Simulated assay, not measured.
Amino acid sequence: MYDISLTTVVVLCLAAGAAGWIDAVVGGGGLLLLPALLIGAPHVAPASILGTNKAVAVVGTSAAAVAYARKVPVGLGRALRIGVAALCGSMCGAFFAAGIDSAVMRPMIMVVLLAVLAFVMFRPAFGTAPATGPAGRGRNVTAVLVVGIGLGLYDGLIGPGTGTFLVLALTAVLHLDLVHASATAKIVNVCTNLGALAMFAYHGTVLWQLAAPMAACSLAGGLAGARTALKRGSGFVRAVLVVVVVSLVAKLAYDQWVA
């Protein structure tokens, strides 16, 4: 076990709670949690940081998924089909993560995020209209391939922003409102986290003693975030989405050109 002070553990637990809240509302909690782990435990190997992050994230996301499922009607069968595809994708991504140059990936992700931000800003009604009827076969297949496998692979390879991408993709592909998209995204995100965590755990790169108290705080944050999103509605989720996307772009730009 790495030597991590009690003060650092407390700060990391607070960060985990905040990240759980953000993840439950609109995704992107990794934007806060990963940098917190890197700053709080600079001597810990990157693979162990990633593995510990997944162990914490899966608990908060699972809590949020249960909270949403109790209040929002979710197509569970469809969510699980996308989730199984995402689990397979995330396991593959985690397996190949060591061979990916993040310096090459960051500019690509920033371009995608800027496009997403422009789309959301110039489409004020995006995700605020009521969900449409059942999606056709074509849209369901697209959701499995693009949302499931594609974003599952991304989550295993890199991670931060996956929850946000899931909400956006589900809203665009399945024509869901942001609250229903967030509820479905939580189920899929649990699967991506489990897939990546299984691979990291297999390689022994999870700090379980640190992950346990952080996971408890993430659980509390996830439950609180789900209640907030359900109470405030799609408009609030959209506002948080804009803030998270801007923050993701800023963080990636900093990593690319400053750090």
Rank of each mutant, 00 (worst) to 15 (best):
T228F: 02
I149M: 14
A169P: 11
V206Q: 07
A220C: 14
A183H: 05
C217L: 13
D155Y: 05
A220G: 11
L241I: 00
T205Y: 10
G150P: 10
M199E: 08
Y154C: 11
K231D: 13
G222N: 12
A226H: 08
L210F: 09
G235M: 11
G161T: 07
G148M: 08
N193S: 01
G221H: 04
T142G: 12
A183F: 06
F165T: 06
L145C: 13
A212F: 13
G163A: 04
V242G: 01
G204S: 10
V244R: 03
L241N: 04
L166I: 02
G235F: 11
L166E: 01
V244Y: 06
V147E: 00
C217W: 06
A169K: 01
V242Q: 06
P213D: 14
H180Q: 15
R137N: 11
A216W: 09
R137H: 11
L223Y: 14
V141M: 12
A201F: 14
V147G: 09
A198N: 08
L194I: 11
N140V: 14
R232H: 11
N140A: 13
L151W: 10
G163H: 00
T164E: 02
T205F: 09
F236S: 06
L219R: 05
T228N: 05
M199F: 04
L210M: 14
V244W: 00
V237Q: 08
L153I: 10
G235Y: 13
G159L: 04
V167H: 10
D177S: 07
H180M: 06
G148V: 07
G161R: 13
L178N: 15
A201N: 11
L153T: 12
T228C: 05
V144C: 03
Q209G: 01
N140I: 08
V244L: 03
G195S: 12
A220Y: 04
W208H: 07
G233N: 10
D177I: 05
G161E: 09
T205Q: 15
A183L: 02
G204Y: 09
R238M: 02
G161M: 10
G136M: 12
F236C: 03
V147C: 14
L230C: 12
L230I: 15
G221Y: 03
C217K: 00
A224V: 08
N193L: 07
G159F: 03
H175R: 13
